[in-house]
Simulated scan of single mutants.
Amino acid sequence: MEATVAQVQGGYFLITGQWPIFSIRTFIMVTGPKTDLWLVKTVGAVLAVIGAALIAAGLADQVTQAVVLLAVASAAALAAVDVIYASRKIIASVYLLDAVLEAALIAWWVASLLL
């Protein structure tokens, strides 16, 4: 099951990470105005790289403890940023949807490790 979780999270990160790189206009339409577009694209690139690594690990059935740590910790970090800054109204509340998805991924990892 870990390989499947890695591939799903990897796909989500790869797609959402590439989005601001390939269409910053639509990204801003959904997520709200940004001041530092270079930073948005940098974070996107890093997420896309994490996503690609998770997909590769899942496809090769090589989901090690390090891969699980990367997956869970990155999802937790993103969820924390989403909740903290959306609650302070620094970022749009649409980011709370991402926080829910990140929490679901973490729960799926926990379930896959316990089964």
Rank of each mutant, 00 (worst) to 15 (best):
84 I>F: 11
17 G>S: 08
105 L>V: 14
101 L>K: 09
90 I>V: 10
84 I>L: 13
14 L>I: 07
95 Y>E: 11
73 A>C: 12
9 Q>L: 14
67 V>M: 09
83 V>P: 00
95 Y>K: 02
42 T>V: 10
47 L>G: 04
4 T>P: 01
41 K>Q: 15
75 A>Y: 04
89 K>N: 15
91 I>A: 01
62 Q>P: 04
67 V>C: 07
24 I>G: 01
40 V>S: 03
81 V>F: 13
45 A>T: 10
102 E>A: 14
62 Q>V: 02
6 A>T: 00
93 S>Q: 08
93 S>T: 11
38 W>A: 13
6 A>H: 01
17 G>D: 00
41 K>F: 06
2 E>Y: 08
55 I>G: 04
8 V>Q: 06
109 W>R: 00
4 T>H: 09
100 V>L: 14
93 S>M: 02
81 V>P: 00
7 Q>N: 10
6 A>D: 01
9 Q>I: 14
31 T>G: 04
14 L>N: 05
77 A>L: 14
47 L>Y: 09
65 Q>H: 14
71 A>E: 05
55 I>C: 06
32 G>K: 03
9 Q>T: 15
53 A>R: 15
17 G>T: 00
4 T>V: 10
79 A>F: 04
107 A>L: 13
93 S>N: 11
64 T>Q: 08
81 V>W: 10
43 V>T: 05
68 V>L: 07
77 A>W: 07
90 I>D: 11
99 A>L: 01
40 V>K: 01
32 G>P: 06
28 I>F: 01
52 A>R: 08
78 L>Q: 05
7 Q>Y: 08
6 A>S: 12
30 V>H: 12
89 K>L: 11
111 A>G: 05
90 I>K: 11
3 A>S: 15
6 A>M: 05
113 L>V: 08
36 D>G: 03
1 M>E: 10
86 A>N: 05
21 I>F: 10
31 T>Y: 11
81 V>N: 06
101 L>D: 02
56 A>C: 11
64 T>G: 03
25 R>H: 12
98 D>A: 08
113 L>R: 13
19 W>F: 12
43 V>I: 09
29 M>P: 00
80 A>G: 09
8 V>A: 11
17 G>H: 03
94 V>L: 13
111 A>Q: 12
29 M>T: 12
103 A>H: 01
46 V>E: 07
68 V>T: 13
1 M>N: 10
4 T>K: 13
88 R>D: 04
100 V>G: 04
1 M>L: 09
57 A>M: 06
65 Q>P: 09
76 A>R: 02
53 A>N: 13
57 A>W: 00
6 A>G: 04
71 A>F: 03
68 V>C: 05
40 V>I: 11
112 S>M: 07
107 A>M: 11
36 D>H: 12
72 V>D: 03
17 G>A: 08
45 A>Y: 11
68 V>P: 01
88 R>W: 09
107 A>F: 07
35 T>D: 06
59 L>D: 06
13 F>M: 04
101 L>F: 10
37 L>I: 13
41 K>V: 02
91 I>Q: 06
44 G>T: 01
95 Y>H: 13
98 D>M: 00
75 A>W: 01
115 L>N: 09
102 E>R: 14
